[in-house]
Design a binder for these strands. Structure first.
Lengths: 339, 339
DNA sequence: ATCCTCAACTTAAGCGTTTACGTAATCGCT
DNA sequence: AGCGATTACGTAAACGCTTAAGTTGAGGAT
């Protein structure tokens, strides 16, 4: 900028104005400046700009893991929606570790991100971290995982409804004893479990404690959990799994035991990961419209940043049941492809 | 910082020194300053720091798509290795679109990233973009996809060797007619195809043009390509697929046609995506050690940034063959689990 | 007492922008 | 001719921090 100004015998301010297309300038000099700037292939320094404007045009995304395709898809939806506004995304992986997450968020705040999107690994009852974010007055949107007792912007899927939907479906499939392989101790797992219970109660059924086992969030957890269920005196004939990887692990255990899916045991997962269709047994699942979560988070955040929207909003996206082979029995209807 | 300085009747510079643990300061005042800073919960402003230091402690990662788990894994390896050095990653998704990619890179440069990691969607023969990056003197590392005629730092897997390895394996499996479902027109696809040809020639076999069909990079492409192969007068009994999703699509087509895998047709993919094991037919594949690519790129970049290493380096990681059910015949040996 | 040295500070300048305000010249109107 | 309004520019200050170059006072050696 200095060079351009010097070459053309104008002040730096004039150049700045020309580049930002301000009114306070004549057409002639504007053209001269733009021309010279292009010649020198000048590139504005966003760092300096940020320093004075207080805006970085950057938002931080904190997820526990990118391998779980849900978060990759969220990231995609987010960047996509942000792109037209020239916002970019700083990504942090918390590895499901609250301490690490805190450090990463501190770093993001030090970088003065304009907003945060968090799939937090904090225990669902500890709002401490979020207070400090609020103190810094950085708008943030929680995704996927709600923090209890925290009034915050949130975008996610209604986990209780997911649990209900999956369980109702298994009931429709004629399952008599429906088990649940539950997830880690985070909000989503709690909601899905609650939905499971709710659906059973509505049909006046019991959810015997022995049929609810913990399976974690990965396939091996599902495998182990399913083996435990199979060893029961009265094993289930329908299983609602915390997510698709867990369900895939469960499938493995069932097949190993020489049982048939869905005839002997019907299974439903959650997440509709994009390979669900290609699995050994194509997996029935509840879709969480992951990309939509990212897009909604982006919109919400932009509103918070630009227009200073007041109040907090919680957006709950409706889950969608997708029926494939793993629960296709007793009059259940397969969801048409293209999913 | 100003507040701290004022409260303690010292200058801002003194505070700055204390915070950065410089020698030029007494222990007593340092302690006072740190204490007061904590009380006011002061947070350094990295933007300002960047402006004077010329360093942002930020690196840009540009990938075509996060859904393809290879890139998600690279991102993970990268952030992991960068974390101890307090570098963070700005992520950009190019959607495989060269123009979009250019814009995103321009933005990253305007943000003054300290380095770039690129899985470029540029046509493999056009080094134009990279010249402009070099002009800006920002170090960059290419990953996964090489640009022909460009002397640049590169980390990737030896694609030719991948093709060789997979094809050799199919030969070992006793396949007589080995087809290849090739990928999009990017460097990796070319290398894998070349490896395929090389292996066949070494065994004095022909690679009839009809057995090399284009399949793209997604499952549907693989599905369509496999159907074309099955309609041939002499269909293949072994297929080397560009990647795992393509292979999964091919599996679907084969099973639909009522053929058995691997007895009638053996299949090998590339990538070892983490669900390969859970597929309808567990998939033999060539592993690209994705996370390692990310980690190596990080190390290389750090050296370029910090120590100003001279010269360009190309790191080629060795591929690893993983044998699962989809090619388990004729004396092939299954690779033990844990992969 | 004088000079030097060193430790512990401060002052001044600058990183590349933007914002708020100031000023000179031109214009139209009475 | 004189007035205010308008246009097109320039000046000064600031954003929060760092670096380089002083300045001060105490202590040690002579």
């Amino acid at each position: 900028m200095k060079d351009v100004a010097h070459d053309l015998n104008v002040s730096v301010v004039t150049v700045s104005k020309a580049l930002r297309d301000q009114s306070d300038i004549s057409l002639a000099t504007k053209k001269r400046i733009l021309k010279r700037a292009r010649e020198l292939n000048y590139q504005p320094n966003w760092i300096a700009r940020s320093l004075v404007s207080g805006r970085t045009h950057t938002i931080g995304l904190v997820v526990p893991d990118l391998m779980y395709s849900f978060f990759a898809e969220v990231a995609k939806g987010l960047t996509e929606k942000l792109r037209p506004f020239r916002y970019q995304v700083l990504i942090s992986i918390s590895e499901e570790d609250p301490t690490l997450e805190r450090e990463e968020i501190d770093l993001l705040l030090a970088r003065r991100v304009d907003g945060l999107v968090l799939a937090s690994a904090q225990p669902p009852t500890s709002p401490g971290l979020f207070r400090t974010i609020e103190e810094r007055k950085v708008p943030y949107v929680l995704i996927d995982r709600k923090i209890l007792g925290l009034k915050a912007n949130y975008v996610g899927v209604d986990d209780e409804k997911i649990g209900e939907m999956a369980t109702e479906h298994l009931i429709t499939c004629g399952c008599r004893a429906i088990a649940h392989i539950s997830g880690p101790k985070i909000g989503t797992a709690v909601g899905r479990l609650a939905g499971y219970r709710l659906a059973l109660e509505r049909h006046s059924r019991l959810a015997p404690a022995s049929l609810v086992v913990r399976g974690g969030s990965e396939d091996d957890g599902g495998y182990q959990a399913m083996r435990r269920l199979l060893r029961l005196k009265h094993p289930p004939d329908g299983v609602f799994c915390f997510n698709d990887p867990v369900a895939a692990g469960a499938v493995k255990a069932v097949l190993e035991a020489g049982l048939r899916i869905p005839q002997d045991i019907a299974l439903v997962g959650v997440g509709n990961v994009h390979y669900s269709d290609q699995l050994r047994v194509p997996l029935s699942t509840v879709d969480q419209s992951s990309a939509q979560v990212g897009r909604n988070a982006a919109e919400l955040l932009l509103r918070l940043i630009e227009k200073r929207t007041r109040g907090t909003r919680a957006i709950l996206l409706p889950p969608r049941l997708i029926v494939r082979d793993s629960s296709l029995r007793n009059g259940a209807v397969r969801t048409p492809a293209q999913e």
